[in-house]
Amino acid sequence: MRSSRRRPWLVPVLLCALAVLAARPTDAAEGDGGTGSGISAQVAQLYEDAARATRRYEDGRREAEAQRARAKRLEGLLDRERREIAVLREDLGRMARAQYRGGGGLPLAAHLVLADDPEELMRGRRVVRQAELAVDNAIGRSRRAQDRLAADEARARAAWQELERQNAELAALKKDIERRLETARVRLQGQAEASVTAGSCRGATRLDQPETGFTDSWVAPVETYVLSASFGSGGARWANRHTGQDFAVPVGTPVRAVGAGRVVRVSCGGAFGIEIVVRHANGYYTQYAHLAAVAVDQGERVRPGQWIGQSGNTGNSTGPHLHFEVRVTPQLGSAVDPVSWLARRGVPL
């Protein structure tokens, strides 16, 4: 769990970093001279920028909520201190009233002369005096605590307001990155459709790989997704049954190799649109279809989690998604349920 101590310079530094990202030239998306590989790499970079901006924005929101909760806790402590002071004052008032009714207006010497038991009278006086001192001390402590808590509350409120301001700027930067990403996605999809129509791939676009540090042998084919059409489901788009698992993701989403293997097929035509097939050491094959771009060449070795392409909406597809398939041969018709196949390898979807 992260420590509750925050570095005061962290959010401004992140804000500056995002400002640099937002101001970075957009190459092909902002002009007419961008190459296919340029727009593909740009989409991947903007995808990462948007993800980082989202994470930082969410971290800032959580920090702001923590600051607001701290301010509320401090206000609760102040209320409790005020209630305790009120009780002490009431107790002192009762003692004073009792003393007055018992002849508190007479001098102590007269009380001693008239008292039936002078020692008991003195003990009562000492008790009252000790109570008065206790109340005075409690009030003093409470006032000091109240001042301290009020100062803490003011600092917490100021920090929360600053975080809110910074989060508003982060949100604006995030929105700008997403706007540029959407523009680049449209261009990438257009180029992908042109490739499919021509039946010729543009070639691999080498993407800057994320610093994931995967230690598992198997991973999901995309990082964030919504599962859509499942294995074996029926529909008018398929001759028999659906042969894979669909992941609903936007155009340009980086697609990962689920495990180590070798690329045995890269094609750009037919019902699957742009597709990649990878052979794994255990005799299985995985297919990644309806892509917008590829980042590997046929014959290339890949590792778990490596970006091998970008999702799209090519071929027989009614919306942006990744069609992921697991087969026992490279050919269509030998598919197995990819969800249970991945689950057996420690990758629940």
Rank of each mutant, 00 (worst) to 15 (best):
A248W: 10
A28F: 02
F272G: 05
R179G: 09
A292Q: 08
G244Q: 05
L133K: 14
I177Q: 00
P250N: 14
A156T: 05
H290P: 04
G103I: 08
Q42D: 01
R97L: 13
D136T: 11
S228E: 13
D49P: 00
L342W: 14
A154F: 00
R279G: 09
L14I: 02
C16V: 07
R279S: 11
Q287I: 03
L15Q: 07
P254L: 08
A138C: 04
L349K: 05
P107V: 08
Y288T: 06
L10T: 09
E48A: 05
C16E: 09
Q245E: 11
R327M: 07
R80L: 11
G103L: 12
R68T: 12
V222R: 09
L188V: 00
W238G: 09
W307T: 09
R126C: 05
L322N: 07
F272I: 02
F324A: 10
T286E: 09
R262W: 04
D176W: 05
L108W: 15
S334L: 06
L46G: 02
Y284D: 02
E84F: 12
E48Q: 04
C268P: 05
P338T: 03
V347Y: 07
V328T: 15
Q166M: 14
Q331D: 15
D49K: 00
G213S: 02
A134K: 11
V251W: 01
L15R: 14
T318R: 02
L21I: 07
V296F: 10
V128Q: 00
F324Q: 10
G124M: 15
G33C: 07
T318I: 03
D246M: 09
R148P: 01
C16L: 08
R123I: 07
E48G: 00
A23G: 03
T205P: 06
T243C: 02
A150K: 12
R256M: 02
G259L: 13
L342I: 14
R206W: 05
G234Q: 12
A23S: 10
Q287R: 15
G234Y: 15
Q331I: 00
A138L: 05
P210Q: 03
V328F: 04
Q99S: 11
G31M: 00
